[in-house]
Computed example of a mutant assay.
Amino acid sequence: MSTTTVKNALTDSSMMVRRSLKHIIRYPSMTIPLVIGPIIFLLLFVYVFGGTLGAGIGGSGGRGAYVNYVTPGILLLAVAGASTATAVAVCTDMTEGIVARFRTMSIFRPSLLAGHVVGSMVQTFLSVTIVLGVAALVGFRPEAGALGWLGAAAMLALLTFAITWIAVLMGLVSENPEMASNLPMLLMILPFFGSGFVPTDSMPAWLGWIARNQPFTPVMETLRGLLLGTPVGHQAWIAVAWCVGIAAAACWGATTLLNREPGR
Score class of each variant (00 low, 15 high):
Ile32Lys: 02
Ile107Met: 14
Leu227Thr: 05
Gln123Glu: 12
Arg19Thr: 12
Ala211Gly: 06
Val48Pro: 02
Trp242Gln: 05
Ala9Phe: 10
Asn8Pro: 01
Ser120His: 04
Ala247Lys: 08
Leu227Met: 07
Gly54Met: 01
Gly171Glu: 10
Glu178Val: 15
Thr31Ile: 15
Thr230Gln: 09
Ile36Asn: 03
Thr129Arg: 02
Val198Ile: 14
Ser29Thr: 12
Phe161Gln: 10
Leu228Lys: 05
Phe197Gln: 06
Gly245Phe: 06
Ile130Thr: 11
Thr71Cys: 11
Gly73Trp: 05
Leu42Asn: 09
Val232Phe: 08
Phe140His: 12
Tyr47Asn: 13
Leu147Ala: 13
Ile74Phe: 04
Pro38Arg: 14
Met188Arg: 12
Ser2His: 01
Val70Gly: 10
Tyr69Arg: 04
Ser127Glu: 04
Arg212Pro: 03
Leu76Gly: 03
Gly245Tyr: 03
Gly233Cys: 09
Phe140Asn: 09
Pro177Asn: 05
Thr230Ala: 05
Ala153Ile: 10
Ala239His: 08
Pro218Gln: 07
Ile36Trp: 02
Gly263Met: 08
Ala250Lys: 10
Glu261Ile: 00
Ala153Pro: 00
Thr71Phe: 10
Phe49Asp: 06
Gly61Ser: 12
His23Ile: 09
Met203Val: 03
Ser83Glu: 00
Ser174Leu: 02
Pro262Arg: 07
Val79Gly: 08
Pro204Ser: 02
Asn8Tyr: 06
Ala78Ile: 06
Ser14Lys: 07
Ala114Ile: 15
Gly54Pro: 05
Met16Tyr: 11
Gly229His: 03
Met170Val: 07
Val67Asp: 11
Ser60Glu: 15
Ala100Met: 12
Gly115Cys: 03
Ile166His: 03
Asn213Phe: 12
Thr71Tyr: 08
Ser2Ile: 01
Ala144Thr: 02
Leu257His: 07
Arg141Cys: 00
Asn8Ile: 12
Pro110Trp: 03
Gly119Ala: 06
Leu223His: 03
Gly37His: 01
Pro142Ser: 10
Leu187Ile: 09
Arg18Asp: 11
Glu175Cys: 02
Leu53Cys: 05
Asp201Arg: 07
Leu75Val: 13
Thr3Gly: 02
Ala100Glu: 15
Ser83Lys: 00
Leu186His: 02
Glu175Ser: 15
Glu261Tyr: 00
His116Gly: 01
Ile246Lys: 09
Phe193Leu: 15
Ser202Leu: 05
Asn8Asp: 14
Val67Ser: 12
Trp242Cys: 03
Ala135Ser: 14
Pro199Leu: 06
Arg103Gly: 05
Ala114Ser: 14
Trp149Ile: 12
Gly151Ile: 03
Ala152Glu: 11
Ser13Lys: 08
Arg103His: 00
Thr255Trp: 13
Leu42Thr: 10
Ala152Pro: 09
Ala247Thr: 07
Gly81Phe: 15
Gly62His: 10
Leu34Tyr: 00
Ala9Leu: 08
Gly50Glu: 09
Val131Cys: 03
Thr230Met: 07
Val35Asp: 01
Glu261Phe: 01
Leu257Met: 13
Pro218Val: 09
Gly119Gln: 04
Asn259Gly: 14
Gly139Ile: 05
Ala167Asn: 07
Thr86His: 00
Phe216Asp: 00
Met121Val: 13
Val17Gln: 09
Gly37Asn: 08
Trp237Tyr: 14
Asn8Leu: 13
Ile39Tyr: 06
Ala9Arg: 08
